[in-house]
Simulated scan of single mutants.
Amino acid sequence: MLHLSKITRQAISFKNFSTSAIIKQEAVGTVGNLPTKRPVGGFRGGILGFLFGFSISSGLSIYYLQQENKIASGLLLASIEELQQGTGKISSHLERLQFVENELNSLKNQSAIKDDVLKVRGEMKKVYDGLHLELLDLRAHVWGVEQDLQKVVKTGKL
């Protein structure tokens, strides 16, 4: 390690080197590396700058994420409300369909089917035919009474 005198060290620390007599003096001692003086705040300032930048960027990132989360939550809430409205509409349609189905079932139970209609039609034909036969019988009877009445009128006897 090289030991320099106080004057030589002061001369080396000047920004502008000059070729004065002080600098030309050589130091007596061993040869080695010169101890370099590091700036005290340089390393700390770098760490402080890094930490300051990191904290600013972290804060901005958190703010951005919160805003994005707020927007996404709002969209999700709007979607849920639309879903609830759609579910309400579907429920009302289902209630109407159930009401219509109940009405249809009651009408089916009350309505006549084809076999019932054919059965009633056959019975009506029988009733009509029976009435027609009775009418013919009645006409025959009335005709007989008219014949008897005409005989009585012509003969005068009963």
Rank of each mutant, 00 (worst) to 15 (best):
H93D: 15
K114N: 15
L75M: 15
Q85C: 07
K119A: 13
Y64N: 11
L83T: 15
E101F: 11
R96M: 04
Q110E: 12
L77F: 11
I71K: 02
Q98P: 02
K108C: 02
S73V: 10
L97F: 03
I71L: 06
L104S: 10
E82I: 03
Q110I: 06
A112S: 14
V100R: 09
L75Q: 07
S92Y: 10
V117P: 00
S111T: 02
S106T: 11
G86D: 13
S111W: 01
E82Y: 07
Q67S: 11
A78H: 02
Q85H: 09
N102I: 06
E103A: 14
N109M: 07
N105H: 10
L77R: 07
N69Y: 06
D115A: 14
Q85E: 13
I71F: 02
L107T: 01
G59S: 04
E82H: 05
N102P: 02
I113E: 15
L76Q: 04
E68V: 13
S57D: 04
L94W: 05
S92C: 02
H93W: 09
A112I: 08
S55D: 06
G74C: 06
L97D: 03
Y63W: 09
D116M: 01
T87F: 04
K119Y: 15
V117L: 01
Q84L: 11
E103V: 08
L76T: 08
S111Q: 00
G59F: 02
Q84C: 05
E68H: 10
G59C: 01
S111R: 00
Q66S: 08
I113M: 08
E68G: 11
L77G: 08
S79C: 05
L60V: 08
V117E: 01
E82R: 08
L60P: 00
S79V: 01
E68L: 15
Y63S: 08
K89P: 00
L104N: 12
Q98L: 06
K70R: 13
Q110Y: 04
Q84M: 05
I71G: 01
Y64E: 12
N69M: 04
S111D: 01
I90K: 06
G74K: 05
S61T: 11
N105T: 09
L118W: 04
S58Y: 14
A78G: 02
A112M: 12
A112D: 07
G74N: 05
L104M: 14
D115L: 10
S73Q: 13
Y64H: 10
S73G: 07
S55W: 04
I56P: 00
N102Q: 10
T87I: 11
K114E: 15
N109S: 06
N105M: 11
A112Q: 14
Q110R: 07
Q110N: 14
E101R: 08
S61H: 03
I71W: 01
D115Y: 09
L65W: 03
I56S: 01
L60G: 00
S61F: 04
L107W: 00
L60K: 03
G74E: 14
K119L: 09
L77H: 09
L97V: 04
S73M: 11
N69G: 13
K114Q: 12
I90L: 14
K108E: 05
S92D: 15
L118C: 05
V100M: 14
Q84K: 13
E103P: 01
S73I: 06
E101Q: 14
G86I: 07
E101C: 12
L75S: 10
Q98M: 11
F99G: 15
A78T: 04
